[in-house]
Nucleic acid binder design. Structure first.
Lengths: 106, 106
DNA sequence: TAAACATTTGGCTATTTTGCCAAATATAAA
DNA sequence: TTTATATTTGGCAAAATAGCCAAATGTTTA
């Protein structure tokens, strides 16, 4: 593997890693329905507001979301919405796993 | 968020996490072109064979790949191939990031 | 201008992940 | 049945991640 390819796979992994956290994934799904400000997440997520801010920052660094400061608030929105198209397939994996589990106790 | 929903997001995150590593992602892409045995990865990946085995195990635990022992060798293949459909979008994120980077130095 | 509000950042600890080595296991070949 | 080959597993140290608190920053309101 060339250095260039290695960089490419690291970059791809970074994008996936940014989504690979339950809280971040939930927030990304919310954002795919439209922009939200940090304060809305603070109301809905059971975590310190600094933690929420850092999660959003991880997704921003990965290039998945972008932010927009308006007044006192910062609004986040999806930058590359196709990211969430994937979730149907992730759910297919979960269902496949559930089926395997069910088969074990049959 | 209910406990059930929480479990769901944890399960989804686990699937993403299993792909969110450069080596695992590369291996997953290879597997989406057809099954491969561990020994082939050992030849092509610059990591200890035990490390490779553990990476494959992570993807297996997540339900992304399945294994099949034939003789001395263990063959892995994608279990839910749609997983790799996502990569086009991940690449779109990378391109978007590259564009942003380029804009910085314009 | 001071106080209140929204968010980010720094710092710290706890937890998780990585990746190597060595040892165990399983299968095939000599 | 010893030996070689392929893979997994256990154990450990290093690195990365998560999440809280406190402090800093930027913005509006009183």
């Amino acid at each position: 593997m060339t250095a260039k390819e290695k960089n490419l796979y690291e970059a791809k992994a970074k994008v996936l890693k940014a989504l690979a956290h339950p809280t971040r994934l939930w927030m990304a799904e919310q954002l795919s329905a439209g922009e939200m400000c940090v304060c809305e997440f603070v109301d809905q997520v059971d975590a310190d507001f600094s933690t929420i801010s850092k999660h959003l920052s991880v997704m921003k660094q990965a290039g998945i979301v972008e932010d927009d400061k308006r007044g006192k608030q910062v609004y986040y929105k999806m930058k590359v919405p196709c990211v969430m198209n994937f979730m149907g397939c992730v759910e297919a994996v979960i269902k496949s796993n559930a089926k395997d589990q069910a088969a074990l106790v049959k």
